[in-house]
């Protein structure tokens, strides 16, 4: 069993299979616990604040209306993420999204993300390197196929276990691994190209 790369924020573990509460107060708790996580996944997937916000609300609305169908064979977080993923897929398949994505004022750019880089190093050089690394990953993720991107984000941003990713995407674990290796290959390739370019410029 793999473990998380980084310590997860104060979000309950997705591995715990807690039953979905049926009362309004419990769905409120569910929303308070997972809304941030679902929003983050949708924001990273769609790269649009408005769309992420709308679909986050839609996710909880769908969950609330379909709560009777929840069998409890996976965690509430996994179930919610699966709903969010389906909504995101429906959203990205519409022509409206493709058009508005180009001009949306709420679209997230690499610079927006760079502004939120943690200030670990104090030196300008360390900061520049971090910005470059982030831009490379950002660019690489954009090049991934829809499934590769989903699997990559679920593993490296949401830090979900492979079994949970398989449940959310409806793919076998072996396919999930294949998508992860391919996404990593794309990122490695981008990094390698960037490194060779930097070397050429310095020589």
């Amino acid at each position: 069993m793999t473990t998380a790369l980084i310590d997860a924020p104060a979000i309950p573990s997705s591995s715990t299979h807690e039953p979905l509460p049926a009362t309004l107060s419990s769905i409120e708790t569910l929303h308070d616990l997972y809304a941030g996580r679902i929003f983050r996944f949708l924001l990273a997937s769609l790269r649009d604040r408005d769309a992420a916000e709308t679909l986050t609300q839609e996710t909880f609305l769908r969950a609330w209306t379909a709560r009777d169908q929840f069998r409890g064979d996976c965690s509430a977080a996994t179930w919610l993420t699966r709903i969010a993923l389906n909504l995101a897929r429906d959203h990205t398949r519409t022509n409206r999204f493709r058009f508005w994505r180009q001009v949306a004022q709420t679209a997230v750019q690499a610079e927006d993300l760079a502004a939120h880089l943690p200030q670990k190093g104090t030196s300008t050089e360390a900061s520049l390197i971090a910005h470059e690394q982030l831009a490379l990953v950002w660019k690489s993720v954009a090049k991934l196929s829809e499934r590769q991107r989903t699997v990559f984000l679920l593993r490296f941003v949401e830090e979900l276990e492979l079994a949970d990713i398989a449940t959310i995407t409806g793919l076998p674990i072996s396919t999930v691994k294949t998508h992860l290796y391919r996404s990593l290959a794309t990122i490695r390739s981008q990094h390698a190209q960037s490194s060779s370019k930097t070397r050429k410029e310095t020589v």
Binding site: L5, I6, P9, L24, S25, I27, E28, H31, D32, A35, G36, F39, R40, L43, A44, R49, A52, E53, Q57, F60, V108, D112, L113, A114, A115, H116, L117, P118, A130, Q133, L134, L136, V137, W138, V141, F156, V157, E159, L184, I187, R188, H191, S195
Partner: peptide, 29 residues
């Protein structure tokens, strides 16, 4: 090392951005 740092930066920045951009909803009740 480079790959690990890149992925960590990507995750941290995404989390931070989502935390800032997340709408503040009133409780469902």
């Amino acid at each position: 090392t480079n790959l690990r740092e890149s992925l960590l930066n990507f995750r941290d920045a995404t989390t931070s951005l989502a935390a800032v951009a997340a709408p503040r909803y009133p409780p469902l009740a």
